[in-house]
């Protein structure tokens, strides 16, 4: 890959996801957890969303949680991997988030649970998601953020430095929360909000974590990687370093997954808008109840 805009090899990702699809039920704990958190957020929004797009649906975990409670009549499931689309609630189709096949204004909401961190052209994907929304439609997405797998990344980096005197990217570069808000705005969403929380999972050792990452289809697909897979001895060393640095009293190691939540609305007349800077009619001192100025 010589195209500088390509960070992730989508072909490779698709193959990984196809492989993961068959046994995903054994590895979907993170997906289920984050889907529940998205549902909690949806409860706070108190709106009806008859037609929904589940973007990057995996096997449809999120889609199955959407029902009459949210006025949902119809969920279209989509995934880059045909194997996932086939397992998700119908109607389902295989799509690339970077080239969506939907007419403008097709949906009342677009939801996405843990897929958008693999998209190369995230602004482009968000713009297309926004266009597929009707006016005042909701985009709500969760993706892995920059703090994700920080322990594993540091351990691999240290092991690689020791073995080869240099390090290469091993775990995908993830977006930061401050980037995410700006991205939503650039993609034309009204009332954009980005925030983050973390899910910490403990493992007996780094091998358990790596097995789970494979099962989730989430292993490194960074284009700028070595031609050879990571050397066995480097992996062993990294697992040791991980254990030494992070093991708790019970000997288990934590793995941090940072989840970014992106919320935005398709613009519509009558939506609340932020006031222009400098347009306030009362001073801040008045607003906070101070009159001693």
């Amino acid at each position: 890959m010589s195209d500088p805009g390509i960070i992730f090899e989508r072909d490779l990702l698709r193959r990984r996801r196809e492989r993961a699809a068959a046994t995903f039920a054994d590895f979907d704990f993170l997906n289920r957890e984050v889907a529940e958190r998205l549902i909690d957020r949806l409860r706070d929004i108190r709106r009806n969303f008859p037609a929904v797009l589940d973007l990057g649906s995996h096997d449809g975990t999120l889609g199955r949680l959407l029902g009459p409670e949210f006025g949902v009549e119809r969920v279209v499931s989509t995934d880059l991997a045909e194997g996932f689309a086939r397992r998700a609630p119908a109607p389902a189709l295989a799509v690339d988030e970077e080239a969506l096949p939907f007419a403008d204004a097709s949906f009342d909401a677009v939801f996405s649970c843990l897929s958008l961190h693999w998209v190369n052209d995230l602004p482009g994907a968000l713009i297309q998601a926004r266009r597929s929304l009707r006016p005042d439609g909701l985009f709500l997405g969760a993706m892995l953020g920059g703090e994700t797998l920080i322990e594993l990344r540091e351990a691999l980096m240290a092991a690689e430095m020791a073995a080869a005197g240099g390090a290469s990217p091993r775990v995908s570069p993830f977006a930061e929360v401050r980037d995410a808000g700006a991205l939503l705005q650039r993609a034309g969403f009204a009332l954009p909000v980005a925030d983050a929380d973390t899910v910490t999972v403990t493992y007996e050792n780094a091998w358990g974590l790596m097995r789970d990452l494979r099962g989730m289809g989430e292993t490194n697909v960074v284009a700028e990687r070595h031609r050879q897979p990571t050397r066995r001895d480097v992996l062993f060393r990294a697992a040791e370093i991980y254990q030494q640095r992070h093991a708790g009293a019970d000997g288990r190691i934590p793995a941090t997954f940072q989840v970014l939540y992106l919320t935005g609305w398709a613009p519509a007349p009558g939506q609340p808008k932020p006031l222009a800077p400098g347009s306030a009619e009362a001073s801040l001192a008045t607003l906070v109840g101070r009159d001693d100025g």
Binding site: R19, A22, R74, R86, D96, L100, P101, F102
Partner: peptide, 30 residues
């Protein structure tokens, strides 16, 4: 079980099931 690239849960009848007509209404060329 099936870790193959091609996963077929329904029998292959050649033509495949009909596509949801409401889905067809909103599909465009990517």
């Amino acid at each position: 079980q099936d870790t193959d690239q091609q996963v077929h849960e329904e029998p292959q009848d050649g033509s495949g099931r009909e596509v949801d007509p409401k889905l067809l209404e909103i599909l465009v060329c990517p």
